[in-house]
Nucleic acid binder design. Structure first.
Length: 786
RNA sequence: GCCGGAGUGGCGGAACAGGCAGACGCGCACGACUCAAAAUCGUGUACCUUCGGGUAUGUGGGUUCGAUUCCCACCUUCGGCACCA
């Protein structure tokens, strides 16, 4: 089956069709995989028949916790478990008829692959985009283990169910925020659907505002805050620090209650901390600051509703204009000073007025301005006095790149007493994950690698003195950040992929994946690509990795619930294939609904699809040796079906393509079922992407040469798909009163005359005077009667 | 609260670019074949009706000769973000 292999630098038009590569779990392909991969496969097969040079690769995103946990439980090596799982996936994929280019399979756990994952990290480090910092990790106090975000479900540990807390560990962090604007702007060069663009923009959360300096009283230090509403500065009556703000430890611990409050906040679980509540907690810090606008002293409080990780970790509070500040002020008896004058006699003792439709008052130089005018005016005022300046904040945080687990890419860094952190030299990559007997996490929360002293102890790449390896591994996202580049050149050992091959194949023309990856994976991989673009590792003329992004749908269980073992509603592709055939399963999955919809599995409907294929097969067997010419009407049906499939496959509308094929088969039988094999072969070609095995057999029976999948998509005769006559609706006052069958190019007079012949039309025309006749050629005629 | 989708028969879903709403499939009913069943094949299948028609695409308005399709408001629902200053 050479037709499935992509050929580098071929003269045909290239088409890079990518579907998110799977995590090879122990339970084999699930129905979601089968559905998504089949849709992608139909498209890839269709594009090949269109004469394109299609790159349709697959691989294994095989690092990750389930395998590590399974290995721990069974005492086996993750490497062995992975090999077994990928072999299962591979054979199930072939069984499903998925025409991936298996010669280009990549495996993220293969050292020849992760060599380049590690190389990318060293590049990030050298460009100052990776740094080590104390960052909180999710911590399960019961298991005494650090947890990845994926392992925290509703604030509880996935393994034991107990509530998780935070622990601070020094971790590698990648400066993705540096690329925040580029990631937003780059979307303009892509053809993603709005939903995907919106969720990425939403996730990055760019917001424009100002940084403002407040002088502390009695301490020679300025407190900096971020605000999107510098115009409300005159209404700032207090300030709030995050409990983790450096000033708290520096100046406030002697103040009664502060120490206790900070301790309590730190102990709070994720869930408690994130709970949105109007019941604010807090404590006075003992500090006072000077409101630069009014010159008045305002108290500085500490509260955990302020987050250290956003803005500057401190806010100026304007309780008259912000509901959170209002809640806080009300609870602790702080001053609420109105700075806008709403038209409707707003009562500031009942709540904050956050609308932007009012005029400023009590605000010195900006009194009388509308909010829209006041924001730039206030900014100007601050700038002139050197008290603040415009700035931008993002919800997007820097990316914690460390995991304290075994089954991941080792972070290729060495800690030297003399030189500090030093990246491993290129010649020494990859840093291979040592095979060890035990994978259990350590008591300290460090990676299991920390226990392997012969691996940890090494020499400094810079000065050669004894040094220690980093024992953290990379997150799951690392391997999937750039895998689409490797498919272009999977065996290259000189670079992550050859530049000319990248130039030929990139960008990915169509990337099919789940909505759950619209933010994290898509953003991370776009970031890494943009970074590689900046350092010249990918072609300069290709600024974005993916041209078009397509969401796939979800298949629910027959009970309309998400499939899960506990619900007992799991459909296993293998069972379906064994019972109904691969082709029936594929056609059914494509027929069940739109490719991007959420749909319930329905076994009875599957039988309908099976019936259709059986009926098709009977027709093929019956007509295989027919010599008679095909009636014109049947020929027209076939040409129309081919045209429809061509249109629908192009647009991922597989459900209507299947429906059209069913309709066509019904039509052929209605017209007597006499088809010459030459014409029937056309219909077989149209179904080939959907039902590859059936089509191949039928193609041979009907005397087709070679493989149907290597054949050229049949040419549609335009004369055959355009009917000479059309049936058009006749309306009176917009209501349907009958139809007339006329020549496609019939003029108004002809159609009008024919329409008047219809009894029910004539009757309604007699009810009044004809004021107007609307005639749309070949579409409709409408009499307006009064 | 903010952002983005989606609401059509008993069910999954069709409807190019404003022009016959319900393609195709499931289910159901009846019929053929059969001793019988399965399989297969055929016919019918939105609702109401005084059999003239009338009413129907979440609800209420609007634009239009004509609206599932366009506009406004609302309801429901799904997904993402959320004490983000």
């Amino acid at each position: 089956m050479t037709h499935r292999h992509a050929i580098d630098f071929d003269n045909r038009e290239k088409k890079y069709v990518l579907v998110e590569f799977p995590y090879p779990s122990g339970s084999g392909l699930h129905i979601g995989h089968a559905f998504t991969f089949t849709g992608a496969d139909v498209f890839a097969r269709f594009e090949r028949m269109q004469g394109k040079n299609v790159l349709f690769p697959i691989g294994w995103d095989a690092f990750g916790l389930p395998t590590e946990n399974y290995a721990i439980k069974t005492g086996r090596k993750p490497q062995a478990v992975t090999a077994e799982n990928t072999a299962t996936f591979r054979s199930q994929m072939e069984e499903l008829g998925l025409s991936f280019d298996y010669e280009r399979v990549v495996d993220t756990t293969d050292p020849t692959y992760y060599k380049w994952t590690q190389w990318i990290f060293t590049q990030l480090y050298e460009k100052g985009l990776a740094y080590k910092q104390e960052m909180p990790i999710n911590w399960c106090p019961s298991c005494k283990v650090g947890l990845a975000n994926e392992e925290v479900v509703n604030g509880n540990c996935e393994r034991c169910g107990s509530p998780t807390t935070h622990r601070r560990i020094s971790q590698w962090v990648v400066r993705i925020t540096e690329y925040a604007d580029k990631l937003i702007d780059g979307l303009e060069k892509t053809n993603f659907i709005d939903k995907v663009k919106a969720s990425q923009i939403n996730w990055i959360g760019r917001s424009e505002g100002a940084r403002v300096q407040f002088q502390l009283v009695g301490v020679d230090e300025q407190l900096e805050v971020f605000t999107t509403r510098p115009d409300t500065l005159w209404g700032c009556t207090f300030m709030v620090l995050a409990p983790e703000h450096p000033f708290v430890e520096k100046y406030c611990l002697d103040q009664p209650g502060v120490h206790e409050y900070v301790e309590t906040s730190r102990g709070k679980s994720d869930l408690e901390r994130q709970e949105v509540t109007h019941d604010k907690t807090g404590v006075f810090s003992g500090l006072m600051a000077i409101n630069p606008a009014t010159g008045k002293e305002v108290p500085v409080w500490i509260s955990d509703f302020v987050l250290l990780s956003y803005g500057t970790g401190a806010i100026m509070s304007v309780p008259s204009g912000d509901q959170r500040d209002w809640d806080f002020a009300t609870k602790f008896g702080l001053e609420i000073l109105p700075i806008v004058q709403p038209d409707n006699g707003w009562d500031f003792s009942q709540g904050a007025y956050a609308e932007k439709d009012a005029v400023m008052v009590n605000s010195g130089p900006i009194n009388g301005l509308t909010v829209a005018e006041a924001i730039p005016a206030a900014l100007q005022w601050l700038k002139e006095r050197n008290l603040g300046e415009a700035t931008v904040s993002y919800h997007l945080r820097d990316w914690i790149f460390s995991r304290q687990h075994y089954w991941g890419e080792p972070i290729p860094m060495v800690k030297c007493e003399e030189c500090g952190w030093v990246p491993v030299n290129f010649e020494d990559l990859p840093v291979v994950l040592p095979e060890v007997e035990k994978y259990e996490p350590t008591d300290t929360g460090e990676s299991p690698l920390a226990n392997i002293s012969e691996w940890v102890n090494t020499t400094c790449p810079q000065c050669g003195k004894p040094a220690k390896r980093e024992t953290d591994t990379m997150p799951n996202w690392a391997g999937s950040d750039w895998y689409f580049l490797r498919f272009v050149d999977p065996h290259n050992d000189q670079s992550l992929a050859d530049m000319d091959k990248l130039r030929y194949w990139m960008p990915v023309d169509l990337y099919i994946g789940g909505d759950e990856h619209n933010t994290l994976h898509l953003l991370y991989s776009r970031f890494i690509y943009q970074f590689l673009h900046d350092i010249g590792a990918v072609p300069a003329e290709i600024p974005e990795p993916y041209y078009r992004r397509m969401s796939h749908g979800v298949i629910l269980g027959p009970d309309n619930q998400r499939m899960s073992k506990s619900r007992g509603n799991v459909i296993i592709p293998e069972d379906i294939i064994n019972q109904y055939s691969v082709d029936a399963a594929r056609c059914y999955m494509m027929f069940i609904g739109p490719f991007d919809a959420t749909m319930a599995w329905n076994e009875r409907a599957l039988q309908g699809t099976k019936r259709f294929l059986d009926r098709f097969e009977r027709l093929v067997d019956m007509q295989a040796n027919t010599k008679a010419e095909t009636p014109q009407a049947i020929k027209a049906l076939i040409h129309k079906a081919v045209a429809k499939c061509q249109h629908d496959f192009t647009n991922f509308k597989f459900n209507t393509a299947v429906a059209k094929l069913m309709e066509t088969l019904n039509g052929i039988y209605e017209h007597g079922g006499a088809v010459n094999p030459r014409d029937l072969r056309m219909l077989v070609q149209a179904i080939a992407p959907l039902a590859p095995f059936f089509a191949e057999a039928a193609w041979t029976k009907l005397g087709g040469k070679g493989s149907v999948h290597a054949s050229d998509w049949p040419a549609v005769d335009p004369a055959l798909i355009k009917d000479d006559t059309v049936e058009i609706p006749v309306q009176v006052n917009g209501k349907l009163r009958g139809t007339v069958t006329v020549a496609r190019d019939a003029d108004q007079a002809t159609v009008e005359a024919a329409a008047r012949e219809i009894e029910s039309v004539a009757k309604h025309l007699n009810e009044g005077e004809i004021r107007k006749v609307i005639f749309i050629p070949a579409k409709t005629i409408n009499f307006v009667v009064k």
